[in-house]
Simulated scan of single mutants.
Amino acid sequence: MDRLTVRLPPDLIRRFDAAAAGRGGRSRLLRSLVEGAAHAALPETAAPSVSRLDAKLSLRLDPDDLALLEAEAARAGLSRTQWTVALIRRRLHERPQLSPSEAVAFVGIQRELRRIGVNVNQIARALNTAVLDGKVLDLEIAQLADFAAEIRAHLDGLQDAFRGNLDYWSDC
Rank of each mutant, 00 (worst) to 15 (best):
R111Q: 09
A142K: 06
R115I: 05
P96S: 03
G25R: 05
A37V: 06
N119P: 00
R7N: 12
R28C: 04
P100D: 14
G24C: 10
Q143R: 15
P10I: 09
A161G: 09
R80D: 09
D64F: 05
L33I: 14
R26Y: 12
R114W: 04
L139T: 12
D138T: 05
Q159H: 13
G164A: 01
R3D: 08
E94M: 00
F106G: 04
A46G: 09
G164I: 02
L8R: 00
D171Y: 04
I116V: 10
S99C: 14
L69A: 01
A130T: 13
E102V: 08
L68Y: 02
A20R: 02
H93I: 00
H154G: 02
G22N: 09
R14Y: 08
Q110L: 09
Q97Y: 13
K135G: 02
R115Y: 08
L166T: 14
D17F: 07
R115G: 10
T84H: 01
L137D: 10
L98K: 01
A46W: 14
A161C: 02
H39D: 08
V131D: 11
L166Y: 11
D17L: 07
G108T: 11
R114Q: 03
A19D: 13
V136Q: 12
G134Q: 12
S27K: 08
V131T: 03
R89L: 02
A67F: 07
D156T: 15
D167T: 06
L78K: 06
L144S: 13
R3W: 11
V118Y: 06
G108Y: 06
H39G: 15
R91V: 01
S101A: 08
D146S: 14
P63F: 03
L4Q: 06
E140F: 05
L98T: 05
I151Q: 13
P96D: 03
I151G: 00
A73I: 08
T84F: 01
R90L: 09
I141L: 15
G77F: 13
R15E: 15
D54H: 03
R89N: 04
